[in-house]
């Protein structure tokens, strides 16, 4: 057993790189592993929200008139504003990645701060919308009430409150889970900000910014689907 049949390869990484973990041979390998890991993680997130989108689809097809009536009670202007806010935040994320790759630390820090602020703006507007729903008794549960709400395009017909409650259940679960993802995203970006402040990232090593950015974009994309599905049903009627 002494003469192991394993050939000896040139011993790896003599030059010690503080960001390189012991079990990787080169920084390139570590970076590829991290970004592949994030992509697969996002795939699991797609399936997670996928179950919800699937349920949404089933009930939208079953109870279309109620879904239209409920969508009308949301304020599409606030939703549209939030969409714009998130698209801007995606831009600041892209700029942050670019700044990191170009060693522009100040720009990096500014972009990270801007992203965090936009995240809070989104949550603030969302909170206002939740508050409105709460006041109108549109939150599912014992206090839910949806009496005499007309169905768009069908004068004289009113939405069935039970079916409307299903819409609002989905509305709160979907946007709520999205909001939780936003909060986590803000946490991640705060961490990135602290590290960027301490000049931890260099053009040779800024993987955390990249994969944090991937996550942020993903959360934005979920919203890009949520907005039309939840707010824009038969708006013209």
């Amino acid at each position: 057993m002494a003469d192991s049949p394993i050939a000896v390869q040139g011993t790896s990484h003599q030059v010690h790189n503080p960001a390189l973990l012991h079990h990787f041979a080169q920084p390139e390998q570590q970076r590829n592993a991290a970004s592949l890991g994030m992509w697969w993680f996002l795939a699991t997130e797609v399936m997670f929200f996928g179950g919800l989108f699937c349920s949404y689809l089933v009930y939208r097809l079953l109870y279309y008139p109620e879904f239209a009536a409920c969508a009308k009670t949301l304020d599409w202007r606030l939703g549209a504003t939030n969409t714009a806010v998130l698209i801007c935040s995606s831009l600041t994320v892209v700029l942050a990645v670019w700044a990191a790759s170009m060693a522009r630390r100040t720009l990096l820090v500014v972009c990270l701060i801007a992203t965090i602020i936009l995240g809070f703006v989104f949550l603030g507007i969302k909170g206002k919308e939740y508050h409105d729903k709460f006041v109108e008794h549109h939150v599912p549960g014992p206090t839910f009430s949806f009496e005499k709400v007309p169905i768009p395009g069908h004068p004289g017909e009113y939405a069935n409150p039970q079916r409307a409650q299903i819409y609002f259940a989905l509305y709160f679960i979907m946007t709520g889970l999205h909001a939780i993802h936003m909060i986590i995203g803000i946490g991640i970006f705060t961490y990135l900000l602290i590290m960027a402040w301490k000049s931890r990232y260099t053009p040779k090593y800024y993987t955390p910014i990249e994969i944090g950015g991937l996550y942020w974009h993903f959360v934005d994309i979920i919203w890009i689907y949520l907005f039309p599905l939840l707010y824009l049903i038969d708006l013209h009627k």
Binding site: A43, M47, P140, R163, I166
Partner: peptide, 30 residues
């Protein structure tokens, strides 16, 4: 990776249904 998230969301929906009687899975409520 692709299956487990779906059971996770399913459990969440049942738990929500249980606590708030949302009607998502209850035929009595549509």
């Amino acid at each position: 990776l692709l299956g487990t998230p779906v059971i996770a969301i399913t459990i969440l929906l049942v738990a929500a249904e249980r606590t708030l009687h949302l009607g998502i899975f209850d035929p009595k409520l549509g």
